[in-house]
Design a protein around this nucleic acid. Structure first.
Lengths: 186, 186
DNA sequence: AATTCTTCTTGACAATTATCAAGAAATTAT
DNA sequence: ATAATTTCTTGATAATTGTCAAGAAGAATT
């Protein structure tokens, strides 16, 4: 039931033997609201763990701004297709609040994986977690109504409704802002 | 553009140093059409590489039969949430044609991962591939119309339309059989 | 080959959600 | 604080897709 991204970052942050490793590899960064951590068309070289704030992954489909992921404190965020495949991404990452993050580069992460099988294993477990999460999201999109998708997200991540613009939630849920407004008005 | 599942199984099958390993760990199995390779409510202990035939992952949502994945020759199939998390799955796996598969158990695969970091790495790369595939599917479901989802699937896996029942394709695309029939009739 | 069962197609109608528009509310900038 | 900009809400209407029904076509069984 927990966001697995939450479990994920915890997986990294709470593992005592990893703290030192990450202290060496990760840098603390601060970005203002609206800053783009990644821009579409570029190769994404960094993964972030958010320590304060909220960010989103989004892209443009025929001028429409479509949000496809949100991450908050303790969660990770990257344009994962680009990060994994080392090719240009259509996705952007935007700070929706002033942001404080831990940043790690793709190459440092790869080196870490190669340095010791236990990190390789951690990488695999991380991917397993985020994979399960995507399966749940497909489940939602494949056969829930707009109303049900709204309720599911409200149950899973209620803080989003307090902290970010409704239009972003609407596109994430694959409905128009008008429909979301009507659903919220019961 | 290739199915990454296809790339995946190839990743396993075409790697020369792996052939011996897999010959020892994998068994050849044959199942008739309609056979359930996995039943909902059980823990899924096996992963399959299909050498002949087509299978699907599906589940029941309020009596409705919902297909959520198809795999054909050279592709892998399992109820991956259960396989990964070692808990009961709501998903079933059904042979849609007479099936010939290579079967490997979860424990054998885990042992393989632990036996040598290069297998652990292979496991991670495999997950990366299938993760990217899910991201594409979410993209389809999040903002394509029924017509566009149909066209996307037709382009990606045209053989499905020759080999399996339309009703399965319809539920996979998240539309009714009636709507799919109308779309196909141009 | 004939029967039975399932799946597919087509039509009429209903439900859901989108689009367009305009004013209200909220946020941001001055 | 006030003005400017953006976002949210609400109504009217349209488009898309679903539901129900019944016959046609196809597949499976005898």
């Amino acid at each position: 039931m927990n966001s697995f991204f939450e479990q994920n970052a915890s997986l990294l942050l709470k593992n005592p033997e990893l703290v030192d490793v990450f202290e060496n590899l990760m840098s603390i960064e601060k970005y203002p609201k609206h800053h783009l951590l990644h821009e579409a068309g570029k190769i994404c070289n960094d993964m972030y763990i958010i320590t304060s704030g909220i960010a989103r992954v989004f892209y443009y489909k025929e001028d429409k701004d479509i949000s496809c992921h949100f991450s908050a404190e303790q969660e990770t965020i990257t344009t994962i297709d680009s990060f994994i495949q080392r090719k240009k991404s259509k996705y952007n990452i935007e700070a929706l609040e002033d942001l404080e993050v831990l940043k790690i580069s793709h190459s440092d992460l790869e080196n870490l994986f190669e340095s010791n099988p236990k990190y390789e294993r951690l990488g695999r477990l991380f991917l397993q977690q985020i994979y399960i999460d995507l399966v749940e999201r497909i489940d939602d999109l494949q056969l829930k109504t707009a109303q049900e998708r709204y309720e599911t997200l409200l149950a899973k991540k209620p803080y989003l409704f307090q902290r970010i613009a409704s239009k972003h939630i609407a596109s994430f849920l694959s409905i128009t802002p008008e429909t979301l407004s009507r659903i919220r008005g019961k």
